[in-house]
Structure formats: structure tokens, C-alpha cells
Design a protein around this nucleic acid. Structure first.
Length: 295
DNA sequence: GAGATTTGACCGAA
DNA sequence: TTCGGTCAAATCTC
């Protein structure tokens, strides 16, 4: 037993050391006229390394914490569906997408979602490059809600910290049978995925690296198999960025996949210029610095 | 025409 | 009063 812990600890330290090493490399590259590709790769390796470290930590946490009751709530009566939904488990996930493909519309978790609303959310940060963000949150519910009484809902919004990350808040478990979530049906590609439970992180899906999941309500309705974003979602992509229809999700330790994804992103005609969720207002004092922006 | 999306309005909680 | 969440009519897409 202790051997296992020791091994995990070594693994953890290894990952952290690797992350530090990569960070130092990145720092060195920052002072050189090296291409953005190299920096991007290093950045992604660092992220993957830390994701892995966090995952290791969370495997331990799972082993000692109470498991989430997978039983769904009883089927809703239409009139108090809203009340029931509010009492359902709520958790969040973060999904990183490739720069340039960052639209909620190209994310797919295998379930059918129907958008029923969209709101501008206050409190978004003001990026240093001069745009003022008004975060836009999309509201989705299961397409089969009326037919099968499925109460699952989700809210999708772009992360304040990283425009390539979507925060997806799920509520309720899918009780419908019309999902196509068998393995391999998701359009999410291996790239990077994170998941948290509470302040812990661990890989929920064996085929995804780090899907960020944070349970905010421990009622016990963890729809743990849900991992995704809607194929039908539709926040507009004002910049008209190329959309290859896939969400980037990282498989643990598969740097080759990361590299491939990063490379394909780099080869895209446009990179990282979409603002699908925000109404960006130009700062009057904003001066556009395109250094490295189109490289 | 059916189903999905958009968007302004409404409602409840803080 | 403000803001988040939902509703529902209008519009769009296939």
C-alpha cells in the first residue's frame, strides 16, 4: 500500500519537475525570436504536465471520499420541473479547445441539447489587449425533456481566464435514452480536458485527459458520464473563424496528440481570433499590437 | 412544416 | 434594484 503511495508521489514529483523544466524552457524561448509554435508547444506540455500531476492528486482524493450517488432523481412533473432541476446535482467542467476553433458549437458530448436561452453575464475580466468582455452564457436543456422528462441542463460560457476554455455547468442527470454517448461518438478530440470534484481534479473519462469537473451540489445526482458540449449550440462566431467541428481534449501522456492538435491549429488560416461568447467593445485607448498575433 | 435558435420579457432570489 | 435563469414568440434552417 505504501509502495503505491510512494510511487504516486514520485510520479507526482516527476510531473511537477517536468512542468518546472518546461516552464524554464518557455521562459528561455520568450527571450528568443523563436517561433510561436515552439512556445505554444511548450505551453501545452506544461499544461499537460500539471494536469497529470493534479490527476494523480485526485485519484487519491477519490479513493477516500464518498462516492456520488449515481441514482437519478425521480422523473419530474412538468409544473415543478424548475424546482427539481435546482435541487439536482450541479457540477462544472472546463473544456479546452484549440485556438481558432473555440466555439461552443463545435463541442459535442454525445447528448442532444436544445438551447433555450442566452444571457450576458457581468463580471468578465478585461483582457490586457484592450477588449472589454461581456461574457455570454448559453442555456441548454435536453432535447428530450418534453418527451421523456429528462431534466438535464447545462450552461456554457467562456472562461474568464482563458478564451480557449469553456466552462460547462451541468445540472441533473440524463434520464432519456436518446443519447448517443457510446465511446467514440463524441466529436471531442484528444487535446486537453480537465475535471474537478470540489477542489480536486481527476480524470473522469478514461479516454480524456483532464476534464475539469467541479461538483457544486452534492445532492448525489452526478451525471458522471456526461462530458460535453452541444453539437447544436450556437453562440455566433463573429470573427468567422474556421471551425473544424471538433473540441480539443487531451489524452493523458499523449503528447504526440497534443503536438498534432497544436500543429493543426497552427496551420489553420486563422488562429485564436474568435470571440464566440463575448461582445467585445473596443477600448478607446486600445492600440492593436499584432506582434505575434498572426504569426 | 418541424424543429432549432434567437432574443426580449418575465420572475424569483439576493 | 440587480442579476441569473427561464419562457415564449419570432425567426431561421433544413
Amino acid at each position: 500500500m505504501e509502495d503505491m503511495e510512494e510511487r504516486e508521489q514520485k510520479c507526482l514529483i516527476n510531473e511537477l519537475l517536468q512542468g518546472r523544466e518546461l516552464a524554464m524552457q518557455l521562459q528561455a524561448h520568450l527571450n528568443l525570436p523563436s517561433c510561436n509554435e515552439t512556445r505554444e508547444l511548450l505551453l501545452q506540455k506544461i499544461q499537460a504536465s500539471y494536469d497529470k500531476a493534479l490527476s494523480l492528486l485526485n485519484y487519491k482524493a477519490i479513493g477516500t471520499s464518498d462516492t456520488i450517488d449515481p441514482q437519478p432523481q425521480s422523473l419530474p412533473v412538468r409544473d415543478d420541473a424548475t424546482v427539481q432541476i435546482k435541487s439536482l446535482a450541479r457540477w462544472t467542467q472546463q473544456v479546452r479547445v484549440r485556438p481558432g476553433t473555440a466555439t461552443e458549437g463545435n463541442l459535442d458530448d454525445g447528448f442532444s441539447w436544445r438551447k433555450y436561452g442566452q444571457k450576458d453575464i457581468l463580471g468578465a475580466k478585461y483582457p490586457s489587449y484592450g477588449f472589454k468582455w461581456v461574457t455570454c452564457r448559453g442555456y441548454y436543456r435536453c432535447t428530450h425533456r418534453n418527451v421523456q422528462g429528462c431534466l438535464a441542463t447545462k450552461q456554457v460560457q467562456r472562461s474568464d481566464d482563458d478564451p480557449t476554455i469553456f466552462d460547462v455547468a451541468y445540472r441533473g442527470r440524463h434520464t432519456c435514452s436518446n443519447n448517443n454517448q457510446e465511446q467514440g461518438t463524441s466529436t471531442i478530440e484528444p487535446y486537453q480536458q480537465q475535471q474537478h470534484i470540489g477542489n480536486q481534479t481527476y480524470p473522469l473519462f478514461p479516454n480524456y485527459l483532464s476534464l475539469n469537473r467541479k461538483v457544486e451540489n452534492d445532492v448525489g445526482d452526478g451525471n458522471l458520464e456526461t462530458g460535453n458540449l452541444s453539437p447544436t449550440s450556437s453562440c455566433p462566431n463573429p470573427m468567422g473563424v474556421m471551425n473544424n467541428g471538433s473540441t480539443s481534449v487531451a489524452i493523458e501522456s499523449e503528447f504526440t496528440e497534443i503536438i498534432r492538435a497544436a500543429t493543426s491549429a497552427m496551420n489553420a488560416p486563422t488562429v485564436g481570433l474568435d470571440f464566440p461568447f463575448g461582445n467585445a467593445e473596443l477600448d478607446p485607448n486600445f492600440t492593436f499590437d499584432d506582434h505575434g498575433f498572426f504569426s
